Simulated assay, not measured.
Amino acid sequence: MSKVWFITGTSKGFGRIWAEAALERGDRVVATARNAATLADLVERYGDNALALQLDVTDKPAVEAAVAKAHEHFGRLDVVVNNAGYGLFGMVEEVSEEQARAQLETNLFGALWVTQAALPFLRAQGSGHILQVSSIGGVNAFPIVGLYHASKWGLEGFSQSLAQEVAAFGIKVTLVEPTGFSTDWNGPSAVTAEPLEAYAELREQFAAARAARLGVRGNPEATGPAILKLVDADEPPLRLFLGAGTLDMIKAEYAKRIAEWEQWDDVAVAAHGIVEEVA
């Protein structure tokens, strides 16, 4: 049976690629973007299988209305993809209050509003799969994108809780964690804070390290089949990395964490205090 998708941020990048992958195989897609005009070609190519809606995910009432309209139009929702988001570049000290709040409003709260709006429909039908587009930066962190990490770590946290809360209703949750791909995440869609001279040397060092770490960027088009395989799985994972080198990176990161926790475990245990046994 064909699936009904609700995807945010489908004007370009992963959202567009995944919408097209779903439509190409005969699924139906509710595609949303801040500018609905960018979605006109999807409707032209795929006809009644595509519904284009204008949506700013930071507008909670608009999110609720869009999700309700999507459900009314197609009669169900099978896959909800929270893809809308952007990168904020700047050291923690450099980021303005406005920039920090805007980053969290889109990347974290936008996904939360869509998730909350979709859940009553998914619970009622006893099925559904929520895909939260996180990042390798949702399980690791680097300089210059601290507030971006904050938004993705927040998404990771509530989504892991959510997966446990909704499992009994037949609803699956997967955090999709891409590494570096040739999208415009760090291009026109990105926001950059005003740099401070104090961080100039670190900025140069990080840029060189990042270029060496990422190597050849992934091809976004290759993620389409992976996402289709994910949503077709009977038992999808809570987390799915996208891209080469991700597993090795996280193994190394967690090895460092465990070594440090073990080194300080005596302090941690001592901090528990003495618990007197009751006779």
Rank of each mutant, 00 (worst) to 15 (best):
M1P: 13
K3A: 13
V4Q: 03
F6T: 04
I7G: 02
T8D: 07
G9C: 08
G9E: 06
T10H: 01
G15T: 06
A22P: 04
A22V: 11
L23P: 03
L23H: 04
E24G: 14
E24P: 02
E24V: 03
R25A: 00
V30Q: 08
L39V: 12
A40L: 06
N49A: 14
L53M: 15
Q54K: 15
V67A: 10
V67F: 09
E72T: 12
E72G: 14
G75Q: 06
L77F: 04
V79A: 00
V79E: 03
V79K: 02
G85L: 11
Y86P: 00
Y86E: 06
L88E: 03
G90C: 03
S96Y: 07
Q99H: 04
R101L: 14
N107T: 07
L112D: 04
V114C: 10
V114N: 12
A117C: 08
A118L: 10
L122I: 10
A124V: 06
S127F: 00
S127N: 12
G128A: 07
H129Y: 10
H129L: 10
V133E: 04
G138K: 05
G146R: 07
W153N: 03
Q164I: 10
Q164N: 13
A168F: 10
V173Y: 05
T174R: 10
T174S: 15
E177K: 06
T179C: 01
G180V: 07
F181A: 00
F181V: 01
T183N: 02
N186D: 04
N186A: 12
S189A: 11
A190M: 14
V191F: 03
T192D: 09
A193F: 06
A193V: 00
Y199I: 04
A207L: 12
A209I: 13
A212P: 04
R213W: 05
R213G: 06
V216D: 15
G218M: 01
N219Y: 08
E221I: 01
L228H: 06
A233C: 00
P236S: 08
R239I: 02
L242W: 08
G243M: 05
G243I: 01
T246M: 00
A255P: 03
R257V: 13
I258H: 11
A259C: 06
A259M: 07
E260N: 12
E276P: 01
E276K: 15
V278L: 13
